[in-house]
Design a protein around this nucleic acid. Structure first.
Length: 564
RNA sequence: UGACCCAUGGUGUAAUGGUAACACAUCUGAUUUUGGUUCAGACGUUUAAGGUUCGAGUCCUUAUGGGUCAACCA
């Protein structure tokens, strides 16, 4: 429920659990009442709608509390990370409308400091070099219900550890032969506290530090300390890191001695129906060519949604509406679609496009005559202006706007029935022609010259159709996108099943449509409402010689619903 | 034979211990030169059992259900 503020009486949104924590921290004067967050992606894939939730949360919180939010690439694993991803991530965050100002950081900026801290831990007897294989270490770690056992190398001398760690750094050992481990507690019920690995040997070129290092810190040894170095106060991450928090705190306890402390808080990640969200699965769709790329309009990536015609406003409103909590959730993709319709309804100019044309000849309209009709660009936008649409004797309408034997509830064209051509005249279907296969090929209608749009009070008809004048219309390729998966939860699988078996074979249909001429000079990413059909945007591949539109989302269609 | 987290309509998210609400979805109706939009309304909710209290979605206990953790990934 929305509360009212005591003094202003202004409606204010109720707070989520993170805001309550922050309020409390500020009240207690924690970290001088500062609020500083960060968005910490690993540059190993493209950002998706789930990241958008996190971005909106972190930057939004900073904004709300007059704080700051950093962009920090968590680049501690050079074998998976690439420059391409860094660039796409920066582009996506900017496009969403957020600004990290001069606070662009990389965990790799802190490799020197992290190394020193590792040395300190060794000197303090809190870390040791283990010469065992990954398999052996894993075996000794035990299982959650049974304690692990100590490594035989756990009690090496400080000098020996220092020497070995130095040699690891110097590149004397091949990958996998040694790791640096924290000395914590092999019997801890929390597996992450059973002497976690701090550094591993990885002879890989790093996208920023090049060949300077051949040992790289693990996530746990880098994240909290990076937060600390940046002055982060609230380090917000997803639920699966909850169990890492004791380790996050443990490192800080060993290494620093100030009143200032970052604190990790966890929230539930976003899940969306009819799609998958794991980077691994998205990567699989890309590399195995089930989609055209990370920015395929069917992908839940930010770049995919952008190409599909989503707007930053729509995504931010969506992120707002889904809320933040600690409970596992699956958001109905319908909410995302609602958000984009809501925004596009206000800003997208309306045009006529016929996707499956049926020719109509208006028999009593003069041959060779063309009228320029004036139509409103957007009834929702008083400043939207008008456009000119040509009308003539031979026009095209949508094939499903005619039925030979229509039911009563069908408000469109049928033998003897009348409809209004939007912005033009009322026409009546007098006759129609079929080919040898029984397909309707042409409609013969008459128009009533007294019913021209805008000429005052007149009789009403039940249906209104969109149309284009055949001679002036322009060709366009229309890419009709639908949900990528048929199944609400593509991840719900039988044992051994593959999520790709739930792919929707009809997620993309390409048709040749006819569009009113005002659209000739449309530029990539321009957005329109194809009246009565849906929202469409000009694709990146579109050109002056070949127009291509992507369907962003359909309009709500109560007629289609009635027929289900 | 473990630790930690979570549990409110179909889906999400709210509710100083004091009338369980908001959005989406669904269904009615009105308006409409988009079967769009807008407007009005309806439907439907506290996992269970105990306890504390004048009063419990909220606090306590237990149970049940769900999730996370056993990469030299993040």
């Amino acid at each position: 429920m929305n509360k009212t503020t005591e003094n202003s009486g202004e409606a204010t949104k109720s707070k989520n659990f993170l805001e309550m924590i922050i309020d409390n921290d500020i009240q207690k004067g924690k970290n001088e009442g500062r609020v500083h967050t960060r968005f910490p992606p690993e540059p190993n894939g493209y950002l998706h709608i789930g990241h958008a939730k996190s971005i909106c949360l972190n930057f939004g919180l900073a904004e709300k509390y007059n704080g700051k939010c950093n962009l920090r690439f968590d680049d501690t694993n050079p074998s998976k990370e690439e420059e391409e991803y860094v660039n796409s991530i920066m582009e996506d965050v900017k496009w969403l409308g957020f600004d990290w100002e001069d606070r662009l950081f990389y965990a790799s900026d802190y490799f020197d400091q992290l190394y020193e801290w590792a040395v300190k831990l060794i000197k303090d007897g809190k870390a040791y070099v283990d010469d065992q294989s990954a398999d052996l270490i894993s075996e000794q770690r035990g299982v959650p219900t049974r304690p692990g056992i100590d490594s035989p190398f756990r009690n090496r001398s400080v000098e020996e550890n220092l020497g070995l760690f130095e040699r690891m750094k110097a590149g004397e050992f091949p990958n996998g032969t040694h790791v640096l481990r924290a000395k914590i507690d092999m019997a801890s019920p929390n597996m992450h506290m059973r002497d976690p690995v701090l550094y591993r040997i990885m002879h890989s070129k790093h996208h920023r530090t090049g060949d300077k290092w051949c040992i790289y810190p693990m996530y746990d040894f880098a994240h909290g300390q990076s937060d600390y170095l940046e002055g982060i106060t609230h380090s917000i991450c997803t639920l699966e890191f909850e169990i890492h928090r004791p380790l996050y705190d443990w490192f800080l306890d060993q290494l620093i001695d100030t009143d200032y402390r970052p604190r990790q808080h966890e929230f539930a990640r976003l899940n969306l129906s009819y799609t998958v969200m794991s980077k691994r699965k998205l990567l699989e769709l890309v590399t195995e060519k089930y989609v055209s790329g990370w920015d395929d309009p069917r992908m839940p990536t930010i770049s995919g949604l952008r190409r599909r015609g989503y707007t930053p406003e729509a995504i931010r409103n969506f992120a707002d509406r889904v809320g933040v909590a600690k409970r596992e959730n699956v958001i109905d993709v319908g909410l995302l679609e609602f958000s984009v319709r809501e925004h596009l309804n206000k800003v997208a100019p309306r045009i006529f496009a016929v996707l499956d044309p049926l020719k109509v000849i208006i028999t009593n309209y003069p041959e060779g005559k063309t009228e320029d009709l004036i139509l409103e660009n957007n009834p929702e936008d008083p400043e939207g202006g008008n456009r000119v649409v040509p009308f003539s004797r031979e026009i095209l309408i949508e094939r499903d706007d005619f039925m030979e034997d229509p039911p009563n509830k069908f408000f469109r064209l049928g033998p003897g029935r009348e409809v209004r051509l939007k912005g033009a005249y009322i026409i009546k279907c007098e006759d129609y022609k079929k080919d040898e296969n029984g397909n309707v090929t042409e409609l013969y209608c008459t128009y009533d010259p007294e019913t021209k749009s805008g000429s005052g009070e007149m009789r009403k008809v039940k249906g209104t159709l969109h149309w284009v004048s055949e001679a002036e219309s322009v060709d366009a390729e229309i890419r009709i996108y639908d949900r990528l998966f048929m199944n609400e939860s593509p991840d719900d699988l039988e044992e051994g099943g593959d999520f790709k078996s739930n792919l929707n074979p009809e997620s993309l249909k390409i048709v040749k449509g006819k569009i009113e001429p005002s659209v000739k000079n449309a530029k990539p990413m321009d957005k329109f409402q194809f009246q009565r059909l849906g929202y469409y945007c000009v694709d990146l591949d579109s050109s002056a010689t070949k127009l291509i539109f992507n369907r962003t989302v359909t309009l709500k269609d109560t007629w289609a619903k009635m027929n289900k």
